[in-house]
Nucleic acid binder design. Structure first.
Lengths: 160, 160
DNA sequence: CCGCTATAGTTACAATTGAAACTAAATCGC
DNA sequence: GCGATTTAGTTTCAATTGTAACTATAGCGG
């Protein structure tokens, strides 16, 4: 009797969330070590620096939105960057709760170095992909993203 | 004088490693909460259970290979699963260092529930994607993966 | 056989993380 | 105006994680 088992042979390699996770972690880890080596920046710090450099002045909450990191992580990253003199923080005139963030001179200097490196990374990474493939990849990610967001909303989901 | 700045306008949203990371984390988080709610399994445990269920008997090292998790994580996940009575662990005859893992009756039961759920998740997720898109996505991930692996190898990289 | 190196897996410790509690300022309802 | 609720941001605490050290067994060279 070899048939009572449905013998599903579930293969993790073909499971999309798993595949995503493995590749993403490899990519992140690989590049985190570069930021770290070059400027002593951890990923959350790197991200904060990048968005503040591009969109300053900016509140912590706006940084949360733009980086998709929660406020605790942002708060800690900002604190470290301020302590290191890369970021400046001043209270907003109209609302004394928010603190507007901007790059200090030192922070701008680092930012000017960080952006080209990011572009180089992007280039090296997508060297493996044609422009069309890259675009499709990003589109697919967007679709997954909104799909997940939708599922999150509905408390009751197909696999509950 | 508005021109001394190269005004790079670096946009994080278009930065592939970032995009990957955000989407992947959302997906992982969303599904982790389902495993957790349904069986009290954390992601590492879920993964170990999945590969042991499909490929038992298996050593911890083989689980590492198949799940891309490091041996500490695997060791801890296995320990928890054994403690909960889902996994069985016995010494290999020929090599007293390795422990072969397999599902206990209770583990098999959970496994039989877990696999359909995984398929449902996969289905819900790729509902947003056509079969072609899904395939292209996986192919693109593979390409990125080997690209990163290659860059890792060469100690000296384009952006050092 | 015996020391040496390598491998399987675990343990210890420090750093990172997230959930929840917290502080302070703003806004809403009345 | 003023108590109740909301929002910005920080802090605390417990859990998860990774690095490195460790234990135990295997295999290799002589």
């Amino acid at each position: 009797m070899t048939s009572p088992e449905p013998a599903p042979e579930f293969n993790l390699e073909d499971f999309l969330p798993y595949r995503l996770s493995v590749v993403t972690n490899r990519v992140s880890r690989a590049f985190a070590s570069r930021y770290e080596a070059a400027w002593g920046l951890a990923i959350p710090e790197w991200r904060v620096l990048a968005v503040v450099g591009s969109f300053a002045p900016l509140s912590a909450a706006e940084v949360c939105d733009r980086t998709a990191m929660d406020k605790v992580k942002v708060s800690r990253a900002v604190a470290r960057l301020v302590r290191r003199g890369l970021l400046e923080r001043r209270r907003d005139g109209s609302d004394q709760r928010v603190q507007l963030l901007s790059l200090g001179p030192k922070g701008r200097e680092v930012y000017e170095g960080v952006v080209p490196m990011a572009r180089a990374i992007e280039g090296a990474l997508t060297a493996a992909l044609s422009p069309g493939e890259r675009k499709n990849l990003l589109r697919a990610l967007d679709k997954l993203d909104s799909c997940v967001a939708e599922l999150e909303d509905r408390a009751t989901s197909p696999w509950d």
